[in-house]
Amino acid sequence: MNWKKTLLAGISLMLILGLTACGQQSGSSKSSSGNDTGKKITLRLADIQPDDYPTVIGDKEFARLVKERTNGRINIEIYPNAQLGDEKTAIEQIQLGAIDFGRINSSPLAAFDKQLNIFNLPYLFSSNEQMWKVLNGPIGDKLLDTLKTAKMVGLTYYDSGARSFYNSKRPVTKPSDLAGMKIRVQQSDIFMDLVKALGGSPVPMAYGEVYGALQTGVVDGAENNWPSYYATNHYKVAKYYTEDFHSRSPELLVASLATWNKLSPDDQKIILQAAKDSQAVQRKAWDELEAKAKKAAIDNGNTITQVDIAEWQKAVQPLYDKYGQQFKDLIDQIRAVK
């Protein structure tokens, strides 16, 4: 009987070894020793926006560059339209390694990495050009690096424009012009305090209700970026748009730290550079969409007002005292970038 036991043990060992070998060849072919061994890897990237939206255009360029620079070895599949869940769900799945990459706005990410709350401070940047100098410089890199504490790796920033005020009553050139106006805001303490500091009356309201509220006078105005002002048809019922650019919350392209740690250093380098190189395509797509939205408003006869933000920055100083004390050194560093 001993020979039978020996035979069965041998067969069992062969089956285990065979199954282990099969397991190593299936799935995403990821290995802690690196992925530059010739095996093909398929990774997933989540985005909540439509297929033709600027961020998804950036995602696709990122995936194209990675595939090209690895000779087709690493394939990144894009899942737009929130196919893999809303941003909060995507973040949680990225942390677990169930989703490999995500394009996430800095606002929801701030719930997982408190340092990103700095982007919620109004009038933080003096201009679009200054913002990109900050984001693509040492300060921006430092903020991306903090995401590792939340089990993510920050790769690069994408553009999401700047939020500005618009209303149905009159041109707004200075903060006092908002006095008495009912302004729709997100359900957010800092946005409510922002409108109060500028002299308006904040009205928290679901985004889908804003058009009707503007049309009927339940609210006098709202705030958002150019593409949203256009896509929602708010430009048809609130014809005064003030380019005060009070909020610039960039998009971030992030990777799961769990996925990242399974990549070889060479593949990490390729992916990081591809992400940074994809930014130019994404920003160009954003600029084109913004120009389209602005042209529609002009063609509609809307009044567009530019402002000097110095007076606006002064008016919101109480918000910096309330929300910005923990970022004081970082704020000074950002303001020093010219």
Rank of each mutant, 00 (worst) to 15 (best):
L263E: 03
P318M: 12
P250L: 07
T6D: 06
T55W: 10
I190N: 09
W226G: 10
S106L: 10
T37K: 12
S126A: 07
V219M: 06
P318Y: 12
L143N: 01
D189S: 13
Q306H: 06
G140S: 01
I16E: 00
E92T: 14
R103Q: 09
T89H: 11
K236E: 10
M1T: 13
S278M: 04
R184A: 13
G301Y: 08
G97D: 06
R170W: 04
G27S: 08
A179S: 09
D86H: 08
N167I: 03
D159S: 10
P54A: 05
M192N: 12
N233C: 01
I118R: 04
L143T: 02
I11Y: 03
V203T: 11
K30C: 12
E129V: 14
Y230S: 09
D113G: 06
Q93N: 11
T156V: 12
S160Y: 00
K295A: 13
N225V: 10
N167Q: 00
M131Q: 14
I78H: 01
G18D: 03
D36A: 12
G200N: 04
L252A: 10
Q95H: 11
N128M: 05
Q282T: 11
P175C: 08
Q325F: 05
W286Q: 09
I99K: 05
Y229W: 07
D277G: 04
S168N: 14
K4C: 07
R64T: 13
D220M: 15
K40W: 02
T70K: 00
S26Y: 08
G85R: 09
Y158K: 00
Y240F: 15
I74Q: 04
A280S: 10
V203G: 04
A336M: 11
I57A: 06
K328Y: 02
N233M: 04
L147E: 01
Y207N: 09
L13E: 03
T156A: 15
K114Q: 06
D267M: 13
D321R: 02
W132E: 06
L144D: 08
V203C: 07
G23E: 10
L7A: 14
G212Y: 02
G180M: 14
I298W: 07
K284W: 07
E209P: 14
I331T: 13
W3T: 15
P175L: 08
S107K: 13
Y229H: 04
S228C: 01
A255S: 13
V237T: 12
T70D: 02
A274S: 15
G217H: 05
G23M: 10
V281Y: 01
E77N: 06
T89N: 12
I91Q: 02
I99S: 03
L17D: 00
R163Y: 01
E61Q: 12
S28K: 11
